[in-house]
Amino acid sequence: MLSLYVVLPLLTAVALIQGVLLAPLTILGGHPDLVLLTVLIWAFLRGTAEGAVWAFIGGLLLDLFSGGPLGGMTLALLLVAIFVSGRWGQGLGLTLLQLVLLVLVACFAYHVLLLLTLSWTGHPVDWQYSLARVAAPSAVLNALLAPFVHRPLAWLERKTRSEGLVLHGA
């Protein structure tokens, strides 16, 4: 059964892996973002409501590990989760190439939203550098990693399909 008692520790573990192992990693300027990938793929597999809950929890955890404004990553993650789980994202279907393309677009949008919240909260943002040297490589990197994250999540989705989102622990 997939309840919040499962989702919370699962996303906490993913966020810790992100914060401890993956955060220092950069490949040609791109940052692998496991929380983003997990939330995006789950939102795509399970729809808006469950995707939004995962995005909210995952974003909040990332915000707590970050020195940035609380709610900034949460908001960005929520918006892209709603985007991929909505009609636009679902309309793409799900072949491997479509998954990669969807994550590519969503990841870039996530970075733009992240920069907007930083800008809104008074942090100086170098848009040209950030979009070209961080957001774009991150989008490409995460799009390439998406199939590897999709596989275990698709398995989890199949195993828990009948349960849906359960807010109690039973």
Partner: peptide, 14 residues
Amino acid sequence: VIGQETNPYLRTVS
């Protein structure tokens, strides 16, 4: 070290 900055646009340490 227990964690790094998770926001790629900020540079802080705890």
